[in-house]
Amino acid sequence: MSNSVLVAVDGSEGGERALRYASERAKLGGAKLVVTYVIEWSPYSFNTPEENAERHMRREQEIERATSGVVEPAAAILAKEGIEHETVVRHGQPAATLIELAEKHGVQQIVIGRRGQSGIKNLLFGSVAGNLVQTSPVPVVVVP
């Protein structure tokens, strides 16, 4: 099995730190990176008819924004440094989707940035990294 690592990016500083950390390790160990952007989305939300009618258009815009704004620049950096990589942009519930993709790509590790949100926010919305650590089938590195 090849040595590969899934790294989660989302355009935030935490995501950048995760990418930097993963690329440094990949350079040393010769691993392949799966750069993943999960666009938060749930099939069980409640929408207005108008939102539904515009959904397809919005989805494409979201994918385009994630791809050209975050994932492609990240891939360009990796290419320059000669790190083998592939990119994925997917809609879904972040932690569950990352795990699903980790299994699909058979990675040995997931690298994710810490968001560092306050206690109350954590309580209400939970943290992606926290959920991931609890449920991931592979080791998770949370980059502070």
């Binding site: 666009i39 989305w41 099939p43 069980y44 939300s45 409640f46 929408n47 207005t48 008819p49 539904n52 959904r55 397809h56 989805r59 979201e62 994918i63 997917r90 809609h91 879904g92 989707t97």
Partner: peptide
Amino acid sequence: SPGEVSHFQALAT
């Protein structure tokens, strides 16, 4: 192909 309007969402709306 996640991210499109789901059956649940259409029903709920």
